[in-house]
Design a binder for these strands. Structure first.
Length: 151
DNA sequence: GCCAACGTTGGC
DNA sequence: GCCAACGTTGGC
C-alpha cells in the first residue's frame, strides 16, 4: 500500500464537503504528472487531504481512502465544462481519475508553515519551494508522523 | 492582488 | 525538436 497527498482549495472542495458526500470522483485534474500518479494508485491507498491556497489555514486537514481506480474522467467530454478537452474522445480518453472515500478529518490539521518549519518534513514534495503538483506520493515515515500528530 | 515557478502550446 | 509566449497554480 502506498500513501499520497492530494490538494484541493477549501473554497472549491473541502474535507467537509467530502465528509458530507462520503465519496467523490477526483475529476478535473489536467496535469499529466498528477494523472500518472493517479494511475499508480490502488484501491485501499490512504491519501492525505490538503487545503491549498488557504492563507494561514493551508495544510493537511485529514485522510481519505482510494475506493476506485482507473475511472475515465467524464468532464473531459462535456463541452459545457471548463475542463472539456477537445482532443479527448470516448474511444481515446486522455484523463482518468480515482474515487475517494472520506476517512477522517484531523483534530489538529498540520499547517504548511509547520511542515516547512520542521526538519522531519523537509523532504516532502509539498514543502519544496515552487511546488505546484496537486497529487504527490508520500513516504510511509511522513504519513505515519502526520497521521499521529493530526488525529 | 502580486508574482515566481513551471507546464503547455504552437510557430518555425 | 526548440523555444518564446502564454496560462495556471498557489504561497505570500
Amino acid at each position: 500500500m502506498q500513501h499520497w497527498l492530494m490538494k484541493s482549495e477549501a473554497d472549491c472542495y473541502s474535507i467537509d464537503d467530502l465528509k458530507q458526500d462520503k465519496k467523490t470522483l477526483w475529476t478535473e485534474v489536467r496535469n499529466y504528472q498528477a494523472r500518472n500518479f493517479m494511475r499508480d494508485m490502488q484501491v485501499g491507498d490512504i491519501v492525505l487531504f490538503y487545503h491549498s491556497n488557504g492563507g494561514a489555514a493551508t495544510g493537511i486537514v485529514g485522510e481519505v481512502r482510494v475506493s476506485k481506480v482507473g475511472v475515465v474522467d467524464p468532464t473531459q467530454f462535456d463541452a459545457a465544462s471548463e475542463y472539456y478537452d477537445a482532443k479527448a474522445s470516448k474511444g481515446k480518453p486522455r484523463w482518468e481519475c480515482v474515487e475517494v472515500q472520506f476517512v477522517k478529518k484531523y483534530e489538529n490539521p498540520i499547517l504548511l508553515s509547520e511542515l516547512k518549519a520542521k526538519k522531519q518534513y523537509q523532504d516532502m514534495i509539498v514543502t519544496q519551494p515552487g511546488n505546484r503538483l496537486s497529487i504527490t506520493p508520500v513516504k510511509r515515515k511522513h504519513f505515519d508522523l502526520i497521521s499521529k500528530v493530526g488525529s
